[in-house]
């Protein structure tokens, strides 16, 4: 925990040094990040409302769920870089369930989410199979599956499920009764129910990993596959199950993102949540609940960068620089593997 905090501080320090060298006024950057993420204006000592905080929570929701998906695979020693593709098929299948099956109400939301999870699981299945029984690196196969998902969903929304032939490549908007609407509180605070689902799933994952025999086997395979095999754990099946579970959670992320935020599947459904989620999961380290602060941090960085672009013309791409630096330093403090040979 201390080392990760130090890594975050070091990443911010490197960035500050780079910005100072480029002649950017650091104080203005800090002020716009604080304004953009908390709604508190330091110069005037004034609170402008809950809108910035709600926006950070909105951005954090898909990151939390996909981050949890990647985290589950990581716990068993697999890198699921395919969360992006699993999220997309999960979202598309949820849209199909609402539009074609006419699902509505709470039961409809549950069924659409389960179908999304199934789609994500199936999309992870080839990578899981290749990893367990063909010895191919899951990083390569999940990257391939991401591309196939992007093009396959693009085909579906520009053909079979297109809203209007010849129009934009998107599905129709799902009905209000089928969507998982955000709850607005007094003072303009908006809560996205999917965020609560994400927190609930993270707690469940934590309990499963730490309190059940399959969860123990899961972590054992992640910590030391040879020792696990020696102890009689069927390591191949465990890593197969890990990637399938991870895909299912990413599918849930896609379904909830569709039902709660996008309400239709278009090409721009995900601006790369699945890729950011890898950073979220790695930053969270070995603890499933760690994805919550990690997702909030990533969302705050992106939100703050958008604010800084509007306020002082700092390119918002700077958020990728921060995230990249963070990953490199966290890789050093936490993801150093001892030679297994």
């Amino acid at each position: 925990m201390i080392r990760v905090t130090l890594a975050i501080a070091a990443a911010l320090g490197v960035l500050a040094a780079l910005l100072a060298l480029a002649g950017v006024p650091l104080r203005d950057v800090a002020v716009s990040f604080v304004e953009g993420t908390t709604g508190w204006i330091p110069d005037r000592g004034e609170f402008v409302g809950w809108q910035p905080v709600s926006e950070v929570l909105r951005r954090a929701t898909p990151l939390l769920l996909t981050g949890l998906a990647v985290q589950i695979a990581l716990q068993a020693g697999s890198f699921n870089i395919g969360a992006e593709g699993q999220l997309r098929v999960g979202g598309l299948v949820a849209a199909w369930a609402c539009l074609s099956l006419g699902l509505t109400g709470p039961l409809g939301i549950v069924v659409a989410t389960i179908l999304g999870a199934a789609a994500g699981l199936l999309w992870a299945a080839p990578a899981a199979w290749i990893r367990a029984f063909r010895g191919g690196h899951e990083v390569i196969s999940t990257i391939m599956l991401n591309y196939v998902a992007v093009f396959a969903t693009e085909f579906v929304v520009s053909g079979p499920m297109q809203e209007r032939p010849g129009g934009e490549p998107t599905t129709a908007v799902i009905p209000e009764a089928a969507s998982l609407s955000a709850i607005t509180f007094g003072g303009g605070f908006v809560l996205y129910p999917a965020l609560l689902v994400g927190i609930g799933l993270a707690i469940l994952a934590r309990l499963w990993l730490n309190r059940t025999p399959p969860g123990f086997e899961h972590r054992l395979v992640g910590a030391n596959p040879s020792a696990a095999a020696y102890a009689g754990v069927k390591t191949k099946w465990v890593s197969l199950r890990a990637l399938l579970l991870s895909g299912a959670v990413a599918g849930v992320a896609g379904a909830l993102h569709l039902l709660g935020q996008e309400r239709r599947y278009s090409i721009g459904f995900s601006p790369g949540y699945g890729f950011d989620s890898l950073g979220v999961a790695l930053l969270a380290g070995g603890h499933p609940l760690g994805v919550l602060p990690a997702a909030l941090l990533f969302a705050a960085i992106e939100q703050g960068a958008v604010r800084a672009q509007v306020a002082i013309g700092l390119p918002k791409e700077i958020s990728f620089v921060i995230q990249g630096l963070l990953l490199l330093l966290v890789a050093y403090v936490r993801w150093r593997r001892r030679s297994t040979l």
Partner: peptide, 18 residues
């Protein structure tokens, strides 16, 4: 430094993109 190659590569991609 012996850090995980996949993690480092992902970080480098983000850094270069940014």
């Amino acid at each position: 430094l012996g850090a995980d190659q996949v993690v480092v590569g992902t970080g480098m991609n983000l850094l270069c993109l940014g």
